Simulated scan of single mutants.
Amino acid sequence: MIRFQLNGNSVTTGVNEDAPLLYVLRNDFSLNGPKFGCGASACGACTVLVNGQAVRSCITPVSLVADTEVVSLEDQTPDSVLSVLQQAFLVEQAAQCGYCSNGMILTATELLSNNPAASDAEIREGMDGILCRCGAQARVLKAIKRAQVQI
């Protein structure tokens, strides 16, 4: 049995310890935020926060999150109130198809928690690992900058 905190709740799973965290989150806990994109840690659609760090859940064995705190995009909307970043993404229309939004928002959450005054160049570098096929990167930058002033 593997125990960890998931969006503020203590959870336990009995799956094989090598099972990808992404599958456990989606199949066992019915979370839809983290997406399967590439399965090779190249796109970022599966991103979650583990102890505050953006982690690719598609390549992370569930055993590695034992006794940690895992946060998914769903935790960013307690009581249906959007986070500052989610609101900024809406205002700036930073999501076209929305598939990468999970990775964008959680990666930006980590980025801004570590560097609340990040420059444009630092934001671009921090977000570089998230693949957006729609080409919304300029609007994502604007959304993160908008959120910066409100955090």
Rank of each mutant, 00 (worst) to 15 (best):
Leu82Tyr: 15
Ile151Val: 13
Ala117Leu: 12
Glu125Gln: 15
Lys142Trp: 08
Asn9Asp: 14
Ser101Thr: 09
Asn32Met: 08
Pro20Arg: 03
Cys134Glu: 08
Gly135Val: 02
Thr13Val: 04
Glu17Trp: 00
Ser113Gln: 15
Ser83Gln: 08
Arg26Gly: 13
Val65Gln: 02
Cys132Asp: 03
Leu112Pro: 15
Thr60Met: 11
Met127Cys: 10
Cys43Asn: 10
Ala143Cys: 09
Ala40Cys: 12
Gln93Ala: 13
Ala143Ser: 11
Thr109Leu: 03
Ile151Cys: 10
Ala147Val: 05
Val91Cys: 11
Glu110Asn: 05
Val140Tyr: 06
Leu73Asp: 00
Asp79Gln: 13
Ser57Met: 09
Asp79Phe: 12
Val50His: 03
Val15Met: 06
Lys145Gln: 12
Gly135Trp: 01
Asn32Tyr: 05
Lys35His: 12
Thr107Phe: 10
Thr12Asn: 04
Val48Tyr: 13
Leu31Ile: 01
Met104Pro: 07
Glu74Ala: 11
Val70Ser: 03
Cys97Val: 07
Ala94Pro: 11
Val71Leu: 07
Pro116Thr: 04
Thr107His: 07
Asn115Asp: 06
Gln93Met: 09
Cys38Ala: 08
Ala88Arg: 01
Val149Leu: 11
Val62Gln: 02
Glu17Ile: 01
Pro78Lys: 02
Pro20Thr: 03
Gly39Tyr: 03
Val65Ala: 06
Val71Ser: 06
Val55Leu: 13
Arg133Val: 05
Cys132Gly: 04
Leu141Ala: 14
Leu90Trp: 15
